[in-house]
């Protein structure tokens, strides 16, 4: 039995579409489930405030599932459009597009559930700040979606990239590596950002007077937490746009996949670790807003150290790209 290019394209598109939608729904479901579980606790504590809790849960979940909807869009593009001027490298591009958004939506989906859950819990403790909590929760949840947007951008570039002028070997590996780099690196950043946003909602509920300081610290913490996703995006861009010499040797192709894997996997830990650091800092800033300067410095040093392993991964990825 022989297979032509169209058969391989269909195989890659259907597999990529399945991976996108399947992986993409995991994070959102965990995040929404966590929010609903905390809403249960909040309602059982103050049944008279169930209306406020329901409202917060609904808008929080609507934002939290944005990453899953990105995955749906990519999945449907994969299933219902046929790429023009396809080569065998396009087959890998389609598979990588599905993997990129599928993996990239996991962290953001789970992460966005934390602020929604803490907002539901917090508003039964401090009903007077429920609107402020909802606003902070929505800002935090929206920022959590950024890593999945990076993955979406790479997925779309992969879907519409023209591979006719590039050699199939090793371009296929570069495209696949780009998808892995963007998708995997978004997991830790999305999850970590959610931890930060969750801590800020808890902090505002505990100490409403510190709301302004806590929201600003949340945005700073989330921005730094997401830097490893930016490294992943950078490596993905280099993999996508670097010109390659035609070579049927296995080693250069494996080096390109290795670069994507190295950066993607290497960004998961720092993303979560930095999120844990910022989560703790914001928790204590809310309790002691007068010491915001010292706590922020300590947070930044801790995050910088946690980030170093992500930088090591990026260095190795760059060596794999330009030296090996």
């Amino acid at each position: 039995m022989s297979y032509n290019i169209d058969t391989w394209l269909k195989l890659a598109a259907y597999t990529g579409g399945g991976l996108a939608i399947g992986l993409g729904s995991i994070g959102a479901a965990i995040g929404e489930g966590h929010t609903a579980a905390q809403a249960n606790q909040a309602i059982s504590r103050r049944p008279d405030l169930s209306g406020e809790v329901f409202k917060s849960m609904l808008v929080g979940q609507a934002i939290a599932e944005s990453a899953a909807i990105f995955a749906l869009v990519v999945s449907l593009v994969l299933l219902f459009t046929t790429p023009a001027n396809a080569t065998f490298a396009t087959v890998w591009a389609l598979l990588a597009a599905g993997l990129s958004i599928g993996l990239g939506a996991i962290g953001s989906g789970v992460g966005a559930g934390f602020p929604a859950a803490e907002a539901c819990k917090g508003m039964v403790h401090q009903p007077s700040v429920s609107k402020r909590l909802t606003t902070n929760m929505l800002i935090g949840s929206a920022v959590c979606q950024t890593p999945s947007i990076f993955a979406l951008v790479i997925a779309f570039i992969l879907l519409y990239t023209d591979t006719t002028s590039s050699p199939v070997w090793p371009t296929w590996a570069a495209l696949f590596g780009a998808g892995l780099s963007a998708g995997l690196s978004a997991i830790g950043a999305g999850f970590g950002s959610g931890l930060v946003a969750g801590a800020s909602c808890e902090g505002i509920a505990r100490q409403p007077r510190s709301a302004g300081t806590v929201t600003n610290s949340m945005l700073l913490g989330q921005a730094i937490t997401q830097t490893t996703a930016i490294y992943g995006l950078l490596i993905a861009f280099i993999l996508l746009f670097k010109p390659y010499q035609a070579s049927e040797a296995i080693a250069p192709a494996m080096a390109l996949i290795g670069a994507g894997l190295c950066m993607g996997l290497g960004a998961i830990g720092p993303g979560i670790g930095e999120g844990v650091t910022a989560q703790s800092a914001i928790k204590w800033i809310a309790r002691n807003p007068t010491e915001v300067g010292v706590i922020t410095r300590s947070m930044l040093v801790g995050m910088a150290v946690a980030e170093s392993t992500g930088i090591y991964s990026m260095v190795i990825a760059l060596i794999l790209l330009f030296v090996v």
């Binding site: 939608i21 729904s25 995991i26 959102a28 479901a29 965990i30 929404e32 489930g33 966590h34 609903a36 579980a37 809403a39 249960n40 309602i43 599932e65 899953a68 749906l72």
Partner: peptide
Amino acid sequence: LRLNFGPRQTFVRCLGSIWCRY
């Protein structure tokens, strides 16, 4: 439909809800 259940069942119900709305 997603409230008043344990965390595991809530997760399953949320997953079902997401798939239906997908």
